[in-house]
Every structure is written in C-alpha cells, then in structure tokens.
C-alpha cells in the first residue's frame, strides 16, 4: 500500500464552501486544499463546523454553495449533482465515523466484502481475499467470522477502517474516530491511523487528540464559528499560535489532557 512517489498534487480542493441551515450559517466561505500524501488535522471547539466540513468533502452533507474537487473529480454544488459524479467522488473517498457504523447483521468479513461487490463489482472470492488481507493488517483476522456486536469498540473501529480501505480510496476522512472509545482502546485505533499516514495515505482527521495532531499530522487547520481561524505546521500552531482564540482553545484542551 505505498503510494507512488510521484509529484504531490492537490488531492482535495474546497472552494468557497458555504453551508446554512435556515438562517444559521454552519460553514462560512471555507476554502482549503490538501496535497496528496498529506495528513491534515482539523481541530477547534465543538460546534465550530469541523464535522460538517469533513462531511461536505464526500457530500454526505450538501453545501449550500461552493465547489469540491477530489482527485480530479469536481462537483459544483449550485448545479444539480448527477448520481454518477457523486458515485465517482465517493469511490475515491473513504470515511470512518465516530460511532463506527458497522452493519450489525453482517459478519465482520461480509461488512468488508459486500461494499466491494456492490460498488466495485468485485467477485465474492476476490472481495473476501482483499478483506482478509486488510483484516490481517489491522490485526483482526481472527474476527472475520464474528458479528461486530462481539467486538470491542476499538476492534470495531479498526474493522471500519479496513472496510473503507477495501474500496481503495485515494483519500481517507476520519470524523472523531476515537471520541467514542476508552483511551486505551483509542490507542490501538490511533496506531493503525499512524501506520496509514506513514504509508502516504492522504488523510483529513477531525480530532480532539492533540497528541495525534501534533505528532502525526503534516498540517493543522483550526476552525471556529464555521470558518478557518488559522492553519499551519503543527509545531507552529502548537508552539506559537497567532490567534488569541486558538491560544485559548489549546490552553483549555491541553489543560484537560
């Protein structure tokens, strides 16, 4: 799973993304880009719009206006979106949720193989082989025949990561992947994510784990009130934030940890 060391290019480009619920502005004219192989941490106080922004990238949330480009597929949200374009975009983007969202009525193996069959048209044998490879990678090959309900939260999240990776995404989105987990179970998920980052996967991670943001990410984006407050290299942001609000937020979070 090493990505080719070709020239870095823009994997994700968001231009003037806005999102409103009635009068309430959730995202206020957000633009950002992520280069291929880059790991971006999205941090900020709750209610800042981090998860909404993340969910706009694969259009689980439809922005009110703006455009989204992922690996060459561009969607202008003011135009009506064709199902084909949407499928093309989502097939390039894997997503991991806070609450895992595994399918409880399917075995771990089926959770990973079924989407491959439906979305990529792989045969069952092919899909299961790929599923087993990924399960081995996340250290859960022995759980293949079990149902998700029998696995711990940390295991379920690792399975969810394997499920997303099975579709060979170019980009992975993580929406607070460890928030629903006890700290020690969160660590095993973070270890898998770190490994993925080292292999050169393009990742956008909404997180409250400042340690992870500082150590693993290449770029930190701080959000507040639906807009990007500031962004930069992790050591810059954590050592000398330019915005007073970033400073206040970091102090509050780091005190707690």
């Amino acid at each position: 799973m090493t990505t080719s060391p070709a020239l870095p290019h823009d994997a994700i480009v968001l231009q003037n993304v806005e999102k409103q619920f009635g009068d309430h502005v959730v995202l206020n004219n957000v633009s950002m880009s992520v280069s291929s192989g880059e790991v971006v941490a999205l941090i900020g106080p709750s209610g800042a719009g981090k998860s909404t922004l993340l969910r706009c990238i694969n259009l689980l949330e439809r922005p009110t206006s703006g455009s989204i480009t992922v690996e060459g597929v561009t969607i202008q949200v003011d135009h009506s979106i064709k199902a084909k374009e949407l499928a093309a975009l989502r097939s390039r983007v894997g997503m991991v949720f806070q609450s895992f969202n595994l399918f409880p009525h399917l075995t771990v193996l089926r959770n990973i193989s079924l989407p491959q069959q439906r979305v990529l048209g792989r045969s069952q044998a092919e899909a299961e082989e790929r599923a087993m490879t990924l399960l081995e990678r996340v250290g859960l090959a022995d759980k293949a025949k079990q149902y998700p309900g029998r696995c711990s939260g940390g295991q379920q999240q690792r399975i969810a990561i394997a499920r997303a990776l099975a579709l060979d995404p170019k980009v992975m989105l993580f929406d607070e992947p460890t928030s629903a987990l006890d700290p020690e179970l969160g660590l095993e998920v973070l270890a898998v994510m770190r490994e993925l980052a080292d292999e050169g996967m393009t990742m956008v991670v909404v997180t409250h784990e400042m340690q992870f943001a500082r150590d693993v990410s290449d770029h930190v984006v701080v959000m507040s009130d639906g807009a990007i407050l500031e962004e930069g290299k992790p050591h810059e942001i954590f050592a000398s934030p330019s915005q007073p609000r970033t400073r206040a937020f970091l102090r509050a979070v780091l005190d707690r940890q």
């Binding site: 694969n58 689980l60 199902a83 499928a87 989502r90 097939s91 983007v93 894997g94 997503m95 949720f97 609450s99 969202n101 595994l102 399918f103 409880p104 989407p115 439906r118 979305v119 969810a160 499920r163 997303a164 579709l167």
Partner: peptide, 15 residues
C-alpha cells in the same frame, strides 16, 4: 435501523 449505518453505506458509495 440506525441512521449512521445508512450514512456509512452511502459514504462507501453504495447506491
């Protein structure tokens, strides 16, 4: 059926 599972299906690109 929890909404999160439906969302996960959509995010995986299932129709």
């Amino acid at each position: 059926v929890p909404g999160g599972e439906i969302e996960a299906g959509r995010a995986l690109g299932m129709s």
